[in-house]
């Protein structure tokens, strides 16, 4: 059974690694469209969107923080909890983004 477990571990690692690698390469080479990621649209006109920038920054920071927390755990037996501060920050950040989007879609004329 031990060899089967080893194979499953390697199989999972290769699949995850392959999946992440393919998506990362396609993001970096432009095969996955990232055009206008930080821009919104209002009546067909594009505008630079600060609410998207803050969401991107907090998303990447939150993801990096969590991944580093997992990697630094000496004996990980369960996933670490996300601090409530981060939950609050990301909730606020998402709300800000949604409010900005709703405002440009419905409010601004």
């Amino acid at each position: 059974m031990t060899s089967l477990q080893t194979v499953v571990r390697w199989e999972s690692a290769l699949f995850l690694g392959g999946l992440y690698g393919i998506i990362l390469v396609q993001l970096l080479t432009g095969r996955i469209n990232t055009r206008w990621l930080l821009y919104g649209r209002n009546n067909g006109l594009r505008y630079f969107s600060p609410e998207r920038v803050q969401l991107l920054v907090l998303t990447l920071a939150g993801a990096a923080y969590y991944l580093l927390t997992v990697l630094q755990m000496p004996d990980p037996r369960s996933l670490p909890a996300v601090p409530n501060t981060w939950i609050g920050l990301l909730g606020g950040s998402n709300s800000l983004y949604l409010l900005g989007k709703a405002y440009t879609m419905w409010g601004r004329k």
Binding site: T34, R35, L37, L55, L56, G62, A63
Partner: peptide, 12 residues
């Protein structure tokens, strides 16, 4: 256009 909320869901 690229979507920031889709990217966030993907990253998380």
């Amino acid at each position: 256009d690229a979507s920031i909320s889709r990217l966030q869901l993907l990253v998380f």
